[in-house]
């Protein structure tokens, strides 16, 4: 006995097996991201006034990425429709645009990530903050303990500006950004005064704490990296599957075209889900 309904739908459910499978899988994915969004809400609601940052992210880049993903959602449907119309060549072309879009999305995203890792916040001993991009730093010989006393966790205290690994202690850093009196002022720029951006040279002795905007910076950055990271993994996974079907897996079009179309359809459903998650992510993380 062979497994039935692998290609043709079962009469009473009207679905072939893989379609049932993908819908179930997506249901569990909804719960996965649902839990993360709920966590976002809980953390945000629980954050004391002025500690939840706004406008940390680059809205134009985010918008661009949204457009890129939505376009890919359209092309993924058009590609499937082309196959349905028996036009394999057109499918090949259109689906390659989907793949290109996923690549563009990831590249843009990685630039955004990089930007966050270069974005520093310095808490000075006098209680003032300096927030901006690290443009230079001067190091001295010193031991690990001294470094740890600065409360630094993250990438580049021991790293030269160009990524050179130097196990030295800091003498001073130069940050291109602005100075603020309180966290609330940084987190809510709309409320505060407009800050002039300029270079600040801060002596190590003045620094109480320095760190970049990695996930460890605060719970907002934490959930930002977790959500977008997990989403990016889904983009990569989806693109790999779609790419496999598009490239090496395409031989099936000749041997078993119906099944091939099903595969394209199912991978397309997953792709729509990945887009949908982003449609929620974008306003939640960038705009609100």
């Amino acid at each position: 006995m062979d497994i039935p309904y692998t290609v043709h739908p079962r009469a009473d459910t009207g679905l072939y097996n893989a379609k049932v499978g993908i819908w179930l899988f997506l249901a569990s994915e909804v719960m996965l991201f649902g839990a993360l969004f709920s966590s976002y809400i809980l953390l945000r609601v629980g954050a004391p006034d002025g500690t939840w940052p706004h406008s940390v992210l680059n809205i134009p880049l985010g918008t661009l990425n949204t457009i890129v993903l939505i376009s890919s959602s359209i092309t993924v449907v058009l590609a499937w429709a082309s196959l349905k119309l028996n036009n394999f060549a057109r499918y090949r072309v259109i689906q390659s645009i989907t793949l290109l879009c996923s690549l563009i999305f990831l590249v843009i995203k990685s630039f955004e990530y990089r930007d966050k890792f270069a974005h520093y916040q310095v808490v000075q001993k006098d209680g003032k903050y300096v927030d901006g991009h690290l443009t230079g730093s001067v190091y001295l010989d010193a031991d690990k303990k001294t470094r740890e006393e600065h409360g630094f966790r993250g990438l580049s205290f021991t790293e030269g500006p160009k990524g050179a690994q130097k196990k030295f202690t800091l003498e001073s850093v130069t940050v291109n950004g602005f100075e603020a009196k309180s966290l609330a002022e940084i987190n809510n720029p709309k409320v505060g005064v407009h800050h002039e951006h300029k270079d600040f040279k801060i002596a190590a002795a003045q620094i109480k704490k320095i760190g970049n905007y990695g996930p460890w910076h605060n719970t907002y950055m934490a959930i930002y990296f977790t959500l977008t990271g997990l989403h990016a993994l889904h983009v990569i996974g989806g693109a790999l599957v779609i790419g496999y079907i598009w490239g090496p897996g395409a031989a099936m079009w000749k041997t078993d075209p119906e099944r091939y179309i099903n595969r394209v359809e199912v991978s397309g459903l997953f792709w729509h889900f990945v887009d949908l998650v982003w449609i929620f992510l974008f306003p939640v993380l960038y705009l609100l």
Partner: peptide, 14 residues
Amino acid sequence: LLLAFPPLEAAGVM
């Protein structure tokens, strides 16, 4: 399992 485990997976990742 399908619907209750993913939130723990999310929590585990966090």
